[in-house]
Computed example of a mutant assay.
Amino acid sequence: MDDDASSSSFPVRHKNFSLHIKENKTDIVICSYDDHFLVIATQIGTMGTIMHARKEEGMLNSPTFNVSVIFGKRDEPMLQACARQLIEHISNAGSSKPLTISLGLKDHSMETLKGIVSAVIENRFW
């Protein structure tokens, strides 16, 4: 994994780095705003599918996690599964901030998405 830049300074705490997942160079940016997290993972140099993920608390039942596609491919359940895994991890780590995630990928395989989830968790801010 190549560490391009890491910063915790104003205006927004962020990290950006690159790694290879299944021979595709993958650039990842993680930002921590006051009210949400932003993750951008791209293999194509552009934003890709943008999703919003949040934890919803119920009075009587256990929390549920809602993932909605804001822009992009709505028929890619693996992309939504990636967002759901990350928001569950954020929540289990004690943060209640929602997540906005952009995935611009050449390869939508489970192996690629697992690699992205692992890389983001290793470099997390929560």
Rank of each mutant, 00 (worst) to 15 (best):
D2E: 06
D3W: 12
S6Q: 14
S6W: 15
S9T: 14
F10P: 02
P11F: 15
P11Y: 11
R13M: 11
K15N: 11
F17V: 07
F17G: 04
S18L: 10
L19M: 14
L19C: 12
H20F: 13
K22W: 01
E23T: 06
K25A: 14
K25E: 15
T26L: 05
D27W: 02
D27T: 07
I28S: 05
I28L: 11
V29S: 06
V29P: 01
I30P: 02
I30F: 05
I30C: 01
C31E: 07
C31M: 15
Y33M: 13
Y33F: 15
D34W: 07
D34A: 12
D35C: 09
D35Y: 08
H36A: 05
F37I: 09
L38Y: 07
L38K: 11
L38G: 07
L38A: 14
V39S: 03
V39T: 03
V39K: 02
I40Y: 02
A41E: 03
A41Y: 02
T42H: 03
I44R: 15
I44G: 09
I44K: 15
I44V: 15
G45K: 05
T46P: 01
T46R: 10
T46C: 14
M47H: 06
G48D: 00
I50N: 09
I50L: 15
H52E: 11
H52Y: 12
H52M: 10
H52L: 09
A53L: 00
A53T: 01
A53F: 01
R54D: 12
R54N: 11
G58F: 14
G58N: 09
M59V: 14
M59I: 14
L60S: 09
N61C: 08
S62Y: 11
P63M: 06
T64K: 03
T64S: 11
T64Q: 10
F65R: 00
N66V: 14
V67L: 02
S68F: 03
V69S: 06
V69N: 01
I70Y: 04
F71V: 12
F71P: 00
G72R: 06
G72T: 05
R74N: 11
E76L: 04
P77D: 00
L79P: 02
A81G: 05
C82V: 10
A83D: 04
A83M: 00
R84A: 14
Q85P: 02
L86T: 01
I87L: 02
H89D: 15
H89E: 14
I90R: 05
I90W: 06
S91R: 04
S91M: 09
S96L: 08
K97F: 02
P98Y: 07
P98M: 09
L99W: 02
T100Q: 08
T100H: 09
T100A: 09
I101E: 06
L103V: 06
G104K: 04
G104Y: 01
K106T: 04
K106C: 07
K106L: 13
D107A: 04
H108S: 12
S109I: 09
E111I: 10
T112F: 05
T112W: 04
L113R: 00
L113W: 04
L113T: 05
K114D: 15
K114E: 15
G115Y: 08
G115P: 11
G115C: 13
V117H: 00
S118H: 08
N123E: 01
N123G: 04
F125V: 03
F125T: 00
F125R: 05
W126A: 10
W126L: 08
